[in-house]
Design a protein around this nucleic acid. Structure first.
Length: 417
RNA sequence: GUGACCGUAGCUCAGUUGGUUAGAGCACCGGGCUGUGGCCCCGGGGAUCGUGGGUUCAAAUCCCACCGGUCACCCCA
């Protein structure tokens, strides 16, 4: 048997309704926050991701689905959405001086990781990005948006963690101070962290090991190194959050895995998720557009992991659409007679089905029952002769005779809400 | 990439210290009720026991390898 590729999952009926529900819910919020949808290719030139995420990140180093196509060009299944959105913004000239551009997109991402709870190789994200705004209010607004979507989906007990990574003006000083500190305690660090000290010292702060974390309480804090502009920005974001009554936890160790972040970074965590507990994350990436060859406009955004959202979402019990009518046609003559009727009812938006297999009345009623049809329309030889069909209410079991001649209008009257 | 646990009908599982033809419940199809669903009863179809090798008179059962799944590490949405 040919099976789906490891880490790639089918979304089956029963599950797909939940996806549509959450996507629609998110769409509603994106639109009310003034965002417009952008749909993007899932395949991009490898260079785009290498340049935007950073060559030394785990994603670029070992998690991308990269291949050489027939034109001998290196292409990559997108591991995240921001790079592609930036590319599209630049390529299509969506920016303009002073214009605020708010975009969202929904779709699959691909990373070659070992699958586990809340982690797939193809997974899906809801992304929102704002271009052209330096204002801290934009950062706070995005956080509010993410939380509103998650809350409307019934996710509870969320924890917002926030940090500021500074900017190219102030981060280097902190980097040096941190490096110095780390060199002092180097022997006590775990293997991974020892490696990080040289390559990417900030990532050390993100280490999950208790031993390392207990050392870092004495480490220099990035917040103390922020330049006045970054400091003011950070405080203003926090203030907006407070004004919006949004609870947050400052996490000076929140570093994020992508190189392009500056200033605000945040994660929304859900304790119920298990090891992969980040359901949404985002931050500011002011230099990215320029680095990709575009104008010097700032950007902020976030992504919600849809699979993870689904794991903690509280959804309405029954998301399947109501099934209006099952037409029980007994015999070929009846079936032929009913064909145009069924089609017309469907064109009116009603959910209607019938049996083409020539099964018995009993079998067809059984199917109607299984489909949870509100009504069954019974038409056999007797009905054909008498010019009357039977409309059976499947919940009460009562049957009403309807004249064949005005059947369609009679049905529409009873079925259209 | 590393580790632990797990792989028996479509689904959930049973299968004794290795021993006839591998079972059950649910689901599906049919019948009881030849034109009335749900409840009940009866019957039926459906399994390369994850794959390949090995041990043995004999393997779903023991051993090895591989594949897949789950969870954790790592990393992240």
């Amino acid at each position: 048997m040919i099976k789906a590729v490891r880490g790639f999952k089918d979304i089956l009926p029963g599950e797909s309704e939940k996806w549509v529900y959450l996507e629609n819910l998110a769409r509603k919020f994106f639109l009310s926050y003034g965002f417009r949808e952008i749909r993007l290719p899932i395949l991009e030139k490898t260079e785009l991701f290498a340049r935007s995420l950073g060559e030394a990140t785990d994603i670029v180093e070992k998690e991308m689905y990269t291949f050489i196509d027939r034109q001998k060009e290196s292409l990559t299944l997108r591991p995240e959405a921001t790079a592609g959105i930036c590319r599209a913004v630049i390529e299509n000239g969506l920016y303009a001086q002073g214009k605020i551009l708010k975009l969202f997109t929904i779709g699959p991402m691909f990373r070659h990781e070992r699958p586990q709870r809340g982690r797939l190789r193809q997974f899906h994200q809801l992304n929102a990005e704002v271009f052209g705004s330096n204002a801290p209010g934009t950062d706070a607004e995005l956080i509010a948006l993410a939380l509103d979507i998650l809350d409307a989906g019934g996710a509870r007990g969320l924890r917002l963690e926030i940090n500021s990574l500074g900017c190219p003006a102030c981060r280097p000083a902190f980097r040096e101070a941190l490096k110095e500190f780390l060199t002092g305690v180097r022997e006590k660090l775990c293997e991974d962290c020892q490696r990080r000290v040289e390559r990417n010292p900030l990532r050390v702060l993100d280490c999950k090991r208790q031993e390392c974390q207990s050392l870092y309480v004495d480490a220099p804090k990035l917040e103390d190194f922020l330049c006045p502009a970054c400091k003011e920005h950070y405080l203003s974001v926090l203030k907006d959050l407070e004004t919006l009554n949004i609870a947050y936890v400052k996490n000076p160790c929140l570093v994020r895995g992508l190189d392009y972040y500056v200033r605000t970074t945040f994660e929304i965590k859900a304790p119920d998720l298990g090891a992969q507990d980040t359901v949404a994350a985002g931050g500011r990436y002011d230099g990215l557009i320029k680095a990709l060859g575009g104008p010097d406009i700032p950007g902020v955004g976030f992504a919600i992991g849809l699979e993870r959202f689904l794991l903690i979402a509280e959804l309405p019990e029954d998301l399947s659409p109501p099934f209006d009518l099952f037409v029980v046609a007994l015999g070929e003559e009846a079936r032929r007679l009913v064909l145009p009727l069924v089609r017309n009812l469907r064109r009116h938006g009603l959910v209607v089905d019938l049996d083409h297999e020539g099964r018995s009345l009993k079998a067809q009623l059984k199917q109607a029952n299984r489909l949870r049809a509100r009504f069954a329309l019974i038409i056999g030889e007797k009905e054909l002769q008498e010019g009357k069909v039977l409309l059976r209410d499947m919940t009460t079991g009562t049957q009403e005779p309807l004249a064949l001649a005005e059947l369609e209008t009679a049905l529409l009257k009873r079925l259209v809400a």
